[in-house]
């Protein structure tokens, strides 16, 4: 904030769509006097306030924590999921990344498994269903051994944490030409396969989560690496390699089919 704030004028082209079965289109809005200290979503707030006061329907978009951790927000901005910032969510993107006179195109995540709800809002419940298929350790509350009973090497804990950082925003799916959720699945499979607590169910987990991913209508991975490039938590595709190993191992050697 030691940099001086300046204001810019931009042209917004935003995807507007009434509902799931309705045809949508890009609408254009001229937006003036935007402080570069604003976040991208605050800029949309300003546009929405203006639309509302002028009797028009505001642009609906999902958002909640506005600090990059809840995973609720997301849109494709100028062709990039979460916009031009690296390692950040849409809510963390600030207007200082844009120049006066820029045209900014804003579209929802597009994937067969993410039907559009309204405007920029999509239904990502498929990601929840994938977790329900096996993204957990089967342990009930009570009866857990002492937290230090099983030592976990620091580098393993760190790797698990790298994977566990996934916020489930769906940017990886939006960026993938196959609309694959492999990065998402691999993050959870990796976290739990790395940790001793997750090992007993590792084989079953890899199989059931991937099966569910297919059933939800996500595509497969073809190593485009687009997911890794847009991931706000910079989750590496080495996790996908680990998932593939877990999957193969499970397919060949596990009792569970």
């Amino acid at each position: 904030m030691t940099q001086d704030a300046k204001t810019i004028n931009i042209t917004l082209k935003v995807w507007r769509q009434k509902g799931p079965g309705v045809k949508g289109k890009l609408e254009t809005y001229q937006v003036n006097n935007i402080s570069t200290h604003m976040s991208f979503l605050e800029m949309l707030d300003v546009v929405n306030e203006d639309l509302a006061v002028n009797g028009k329907e505001p642009i609906e978009f999902d958002n909640d924590c506005r600090e990059g951790i809840c995973g609720m927000c997301g849109a494709v901005v100028n062709g990039a999921a979460h916009g031009p910032g690296k390692g950040m969510t849409l809510c963390q993107l600030h207007m200082r990344k844009f120049q006066n006179g820029d045209t900014i195109v804003v579209e929802p995540w597009r994937a067969r498994a993410f039907p559009i709800v309204k405007d920029l809002i999509v239904d990502r419940s498929a990601l929840d269903r994938i977790i329900q298929a096996g993204g957990y350790v089967s342990i009930n509350a009570g009866g857990a051994p002492d937290g230090n009973a099983v030592p976990i090497p620091q580098e393993i804990a760190e790797k698990a944490m790298d994977a566990a950082a996934c916020i489930g925003c769906g940017a990886c799916v939006a960026a993938c030409p196959n609309a694959s959720a492999m990065l998402f699945v691999s993050a959870k499979v990796s976290q739990l396969a790395l940790l001793p607590q997750g090992k007993p169910e590792a084989a079953k987990r890899a199989l059931t989560m991937l099966r569910q991913m297919d059933d939800c209508g996500f595509g497969n991975c073809s190593n485009e690496r687009e997911c890794e490039a847009v991931c706000p938590k910079e989750i590496s595709i080495t996790n996908i390699a680990r998932l593939n190993r877990e999957y193969l191992k499970a397919g060949f050697f596990s009792e569970f089919k």
Partner: peptide, 10 residues
Amino acid sequence: DQCVAQGVPF
């Protein structure tokens, strides 16, 4: 203890 058992990467 519970969280460690769930696979929380402390």
